[in-house]
């Protein structure tokens, strides 16, 4: 078989493959539920209800989506330049670490919060800068280095939380001291469990969109991603563009850590992130790397996780169904997008 580009795709060509991908994902969900001995329709209903069936459920989904918007944006920005940042998890923890370090210094809230965010951004950016310098200087593949740094960072955080950063009031648990009240992100609306981290995530998505579509850097990032050699030939400073991309991407991932600590948890633990860094890759890919799409795709992914959590409390279906569904959705979707532009021919 061979792939042949389609010059002018018909509307059916454009919309049918993604629709089939969504249908196939739902079919897999039903199959997995049946495998677990549960009623497929009921299981799907419970996931939907758990994700958006009540005010509480919807707020839970929005909270869960917040770190995913940040990590999804981090991945989308980097992948656009074909910079394979798989280390959002490490950058997130670096951001969370600086958030706690600065937030517990006794500074007044209005001064502390911007410093915490700034410190987080710098830390995350630095964590990604290392692998990118290795890539641009020595040609070391950044996929493996960023992946490996996730494990190093997890161990570093584990050491800090058992050693110098351990909360003396923590009854022996490995957790950091809690942030004082006034250095936490307030709720957007009193009484509703949704903090300003969510608003910050939306602002970041809009800013990234503006950066990508309205600035020279955005144009350069796209050019580097499409063809680095051609970009270099056209006079674009490829290395500098990659370094700038790394700073933005690492900073965005770190803001996920800032927002989780300052907005939701109030302290740092080794399980702060439920694989938000890795899930950010799915979020970004489902959004086709579009920054505004990332918001929608993060809400969808968060909904599946929150819904599956709530469903598994009622039905005997393991929560890992959420991870399985997202992996399927990712693979189905990348194939579907390809099939909107190419035709499979024999020979």
């Amino acid at each position: 078989m061979r792939l042949e580009p389609i010059a002018a795709p018909s509307p059916a060509r454009t919309f049918a493959p993604p629709a089939i991908a969504i249908a196939a994902t739902i079919a897999v969900a039903a199959l997995l539920a049946a495998l677990a001995g549960a009623n497929p329709a009921q299981t799907l209903g419970l996931i939907l209800k758990g994700a958006a069936g009540s005010k509480f459920a919807a707020l839970e989904t929005l909270n869960r989506a917040t770190p995913l918007i940040f990590t999804g944006l981090a991945v989308a920005v980097a992948f656009r330049a074909r910079l394979w940042n798989i280390g959002a998890e490490a950058q997130l923890y670096a951001g969370a670490l600086l958030t706690v370090l600065i937030g517990t210094q006794g500074l007044p809230g209005p001064l502390a919060l911007p410093l915490m965010a700034l410190g987080a951004i710098l830390a995350g950016a630095l964590v990604l800068l290392g692998p990118v310098i290795l890539k641009t200087r020595l040609g070391v593949d950044e996929v493996v280095t960023t992946l490996l740094l996730n494990f190093v960072m997890a161990l570093l955080i584990s050491y800090l939380l058992e050693g110098p950063l351990k909360d003396p009031m923590g009854m022996g648990w490995p957790k950091s001291p809690s942030l004082p009240r006034d250095t936490r992100l307030p709720r957007i609306i009193d009484g509703l469990r949704l903090h300003w981290g969510f608003a910050l995530a939306l602002i970041c998505a809009a800013s990234v969109w503006v950066m990508q579509t309205r600035t020279t850097l955005g144009y350069e990032i796209r050019a580097v991603g499409l063809n680095p050699d051609a970009a270099r030939f056209a006079g674009i400073p490829v290395t500098r563009v990659l370094l700038k991309t790394a700073l933005i991407s690492g900073g965005l991932a770190a803001l996920a850590g800032f927002s989780e600590v300052a907005g939701l948890k109030g302290n740092l633990t080794t399980d702060l992130s439920a694989n938000f860094g890795y899930t950010g890759i799915v979020v970004a890919m489902l959004a086709l790397l579009h920054p505004l799409g990332v918001v929608i795709s993060a809400l969808f992914v968060a909904g599946i996780f929150v819904g599956a959590d709530s469903m598994s409390r009622a039905a005997e279906v393991p929560t890992y169904i959420a991870d399985l569904l997202l992996a399927c959705a990712l693979l189905f979707m990348v194939l579907a997008i390809l099939l909107t532009r190419f035709r499979v021919v024999r020979g």
């Binding site: 078989m1 792939l3 997995l32 495998l35 677990a36 394979w84 798989i86 996929v143 890795y278 890759i281 799915v282 890919m285 393991p318 890992y320 169904i321 991870d323 399985l324 997202l326 992996a327 399927c328 990712l330 693979l331 990348v334 194939l335 390809l338």
Partner: peptide, 28 residues
């Protein structure tokens, strides 16, 4: 290979799929 999709994206997707499949089956 025949579809020529990004080896990065597909590889990470397969890692997520296989890991989740193992955990799901183990919990079942």
């Amino acid at each position: 290979i025949p579809f020529g999709l990004s080896q990065h994206v597909v590889g990470l997707g397969i890692t997520m799929l296989a890991t989740a499949a193992a955990y799901y089956a183990y919990r079942l």
